[in-house]
Design a binder for these strands. Sequence first.
DNA 1: GTCTATAAGCCGATAGAC
DNA 2: GTCTATCGGCTTATAGAC
Lengths: 190, 190
Amino acid sequence: MAAVTKERIVSAASKLFYGEGIGRVSMDAVAEKAGVTKRTLYYHFRSKDDLVAAYLDGRDQPNLALFQRWFAGTNGGLADKTRGIFLNLGQSARHPKWKGCGFLRTMAELANMPGHPAMKVGAEHKKKFEQWIRTMVEAEGIEDGLRLARQIMLLLDGAFAVTLLHRDASYMETAGEAAYSLVKTALASR
Amino acid sequence: MAAVTKERIVSAASKLFYGEGIGRVSMDAVAEKAGVTKRTLYYHFRSKDDLVAAYLDGRDQPNLALFQRWFAGTNGGLADKTRGIFLNLGQSARHPKWKGCGFLRTMAELANMPGHPAMKVGAEHKKKFEQWIRTMVEAEGIEDGLRLARQIMLLLDGAFAVTLLHRDASYMETAGEAAYSLVKTALASR
DNA sequence: GTCTATAAGCCGATAGAC
DNA sequence: GTCTATCGGCTTATAGAC
């Protein structure tokens, strides 16, 4: 069946692209991991660029949903819940297979191709996160929630990068403390 | 002359690697841009991996010195000077050729090769920045300067990533405001 | 230390059969 | 929709002359 095959291809591509980076994964490798021939692969995806976009698109909703579960599942107020995202991410980052944020790493690799289909998917994903955290922040009556939401996201993406660079998950917790502090300051000046 | 040729190779590699990413630049392209043959290139560098490490190594000191100049050249106290780094970076980011932080982008591309010589150079560079900003912070009598220094660096690296992703330099200023706020909070609780 | 020339293999993508 | 087979080009790296 077509749909099943296509999903299997995206699943295989997702693991390989996330684990090794876009440029280091060949279409041959994707086809082999998915258990199809290259001809089938190119039947479902016009090009590698399209497959990369499909990879990120498939990670969009699950990724956002995970952050939202972590936020909702943390006891306390807005500052605690925000920090909860970072603490959960710190736990994830300790797994050996963790390789940072697939969106950011793909963006870094495709930085000189602003028209690449995957760039659009990645930018939209980060905007969605920004919008969601803004909604959470403004529900607590904070003015200019966009500003605070962006600062939280900046800390989150910085934590992805630095944790990966040093292979030291404690940076996630440090970033979480910074976010906690910024939220508390914003709440106090309501 | 050997030294001059080697420098010319690193200079050419630096421009290409930063502009297009490691994987997208061939050794042929580096040789052509440097005006040498590939045989000469491989005389000076054992492999492409070594050349990548030399590229980052060559950016280490100039990069740190630039941040230090921006810091020292901003009027005001610690919070203002810290924010000054972000504001200057925001100006740089508006240039069309700006492609984020070469260290972070290289690291993102080589994430699955922890033993790569360039990874070590990149990690050391970021540690040097962390140490320097820690010294500046502790000179103002802040306890646990490491913590604040790391938070500033997390914001900086987050700003690199998000500014590049959205091609929107205003994120640099937002990150600068967050750093300003964190420094002020730390100063107040001295 | 720099040159010309080329090895040996991998790359994305396609042709044509069924 | 999936297969076998392969194209033309580009990749890192090396051989041997000077």
